[in-house]
Write a protein that binds this DNA or RNA. Structure first.
Lengths: 134, 134
DNA sequence: CCATCAGGAGGCTATTATGGCTTTAGATTC
DNA sequence: GAATCTAAAGCCATAATAGCCTCCTGATGG
């Protein structure tokens, strides 16, 4: 939820994978990045499920980009990795159910939506290619 | 670090406070938002320390905006609330010390900086007024 | 003054995120 | 087909976050 370490690791991985010309396995990647192998593996699996990465089992297997960097945007990456909501601001529990209850909160709902929209747009416009270029 | 619930609560509070014409105390605010009073109190205190909010003790005390909504940007809010680094992506531990060790990682350092810069710019340009208007 | 109200600060608990470990399954090579 | 490699998926431990409670301090109003 929000932006966690998992998002960060996902982006780090994508940057490294974009430079590799053959699949990298999670162990190698975790050593390169000096981060937890098992946690990273879960993140890579999530990205594979969302078709951002392709996974290859067996000898010389690993993960590689499934899309051109220009097709990979940060909103997709983060929402894949953070499982549930694609929301950066998923709001306090009661706020999610706003329309029905807690009239006090309903009044700020439009503003939250607006903020969420701005953030989503920014993240959706930010592609891996933008980070890699130059 | 990264973006936590504290950032979210801070923004929710700022939206509500911007609509109030007198100081609101943390208990009222926490009820309005249906979030933890004591956690919220710490967040409000952090915002007060950064001079984003003004705090008033005693009867009819509470918190109110110390600045015009146009002067309050999300980068300031988040970095105030998240204490340490103003970084959205503060990167894996070893990556922070990059220049000296872990040559493997140094190669992706520039890309991370670039990403961080883009996010910071976006957040710094996003003011409370932007969220409130319309 | 004195009582009361609300912020400030800290410790303690519960929840969630992070990371470790093991087993299962698919793919490759021989 | 057997052996080996690596992803996939689970369960469990630890660390960080979110939330709770109490006491203290400064301000206000009588």
């Amino acid at each position: 939820m929000l932006i966690t370490r998992a998002s960060e690791y996902a982006i780090l991985s994508l940057i490294v994978l974009s430079k590799a010309n053959s699949p990298m396995d999670s162990e190698t990647l975790s050593r390169e990045l000096s981060i937890s192998k098992s946690f990273l593996a879960k993140i890579l699996q999530a990205l594979a499920k969302s078709n951002i990465l392709k996974s290859y089992k067996g000898v010389n297997g690993g993960f590689s980009l499934a899309l051109h960097p220009r097709e990979i945007n940060m909103l997709n990456v983060m929402s894949s990795v953070e499982g549930k909501a694609p929301a950066v601001f998923d709001c306090a529990p009661s706020i999610n159910n706003c329309p029905s209850e807690k009239a006090n909160i309903c009044s700020i709902w439009p503003f939250l939506n607006k903020l969420q929209g701005k953030i989503d747009t920014f993240l959706a416009d930010l592609t891996l290619a933008d980070i890699l270029e130059e």
